[in-house]
Write a protein that binds this DNA or RNA. Structure first.
Lengths: 151, 151
DNA sequence: GCTATAAACTACTAATCCAGTAGGATATAT
DNA sequence: ATATATCCTACTGGATTAGTAGTTTATAGC
């Protein structure tokens, strides 16, 4: 349960990398090469290409082709939320479709959706997850003061 | 992300059903037929067979064959936690293996696991989910006073 | 002991998703 | 023109999901 795909993980790693290279006080950003990013984060290059392209189509990134080209964030790291990123690659963040707001779908086997015990719990899970992912930006994580992680 | 399989959902529905049929003050429980459960909860019968068997092997259920046979809970609904059930069917409840306690595995692409931003966030997600699933029993849900659900 | 009942078990399948890869097309700077 | 670097489409092998089919074993009642 609750598993993150490699694709989403790579996307987040790429965005964190680009966030670290973000220049706050300049309008124009220095592009980062796919090749550089792939090597630095140990992401298969061709796979990363596809991922960055999807992020661009989702308007989180901008790019330029040819010499001096590459990718950069289209907005500030504090304005990019993890929930948004994950939704791009994995669709709705809901353990079950009947608790999704925008992609709601009722279970075929459900008699009374308002009293379904499974739905009751999964709604709580969803809200707890969204409370993290939709409130945490790339910048929040980079500036976190409770690091290193201790399990 | 965070998606529940049909199998887990059916398992939970079956357990809630058996909880409703649990007789608190008696040592001996009245068996419930697979066929009855399948019809009442609209679960494919053969699939449910497999599911109940797995729950039995996980010691959450007991059963008897032949006439007068069926399935019943091997312990009280207040002693069966949702996290346990979900782990039986889906394995570890962790968005990524590097935040799992018992099934820990490091990412191959990770340079410094203690400062990994992805891991940092996914640990928070995991803790939030476990805080619900490992603290909520079947009985807790059946006795919930915040029903019906309002999205 | 025979018969009906009901769970137990093994093995298979079709469809979907995941984690990439291959190869060429297009845009840009010099 | 040429080198550089992104853009785009299509594909592949493996794993997982949601079941189904068919047979075997245990049990209760007569």
């Amino acid at each position: 349960m609750t598993s993150l795909t490699q694709k989403s993980k790579y996307a987040l790693k790429a965005l964190f990398y680009l966030s670290r290279h973000y220049q706050p006080d300049q309008g124009v950003q220095t592009p980062v090469l796919i090749a550089e990013l792939a090597e630095a984060e140990h992401i298969p290059r061709k796979f990363l290409e596809v991922i960055l392209l999807e992020l661009k189509h989702a308007t989180l990134l901008q790019s330029r082709k040819g010499k001096g080209g590459g990718y950069w964030l289209s907005k500030k790291p504090q304005d990019i939320y993890l929930g948004h990123v994950i939704r791009i690659f994995e669709g709705p963040i809901a353990p079950i479709a009947c608790v999704s707001k925008r992609h709601f779908e009722a279970c075929q086997d459900c008699d009374d959706i308002d009293y379904c015990q499974v739905r009751y719990v999964m709604l709580k899970v969803k809200l707890a997850v969204l409370d993290i992912l939709d409130k945490t930006s790339l910048a929040d994580v980079l500036n976190a003061d409770d690091l290193p992680i201790m399990l």
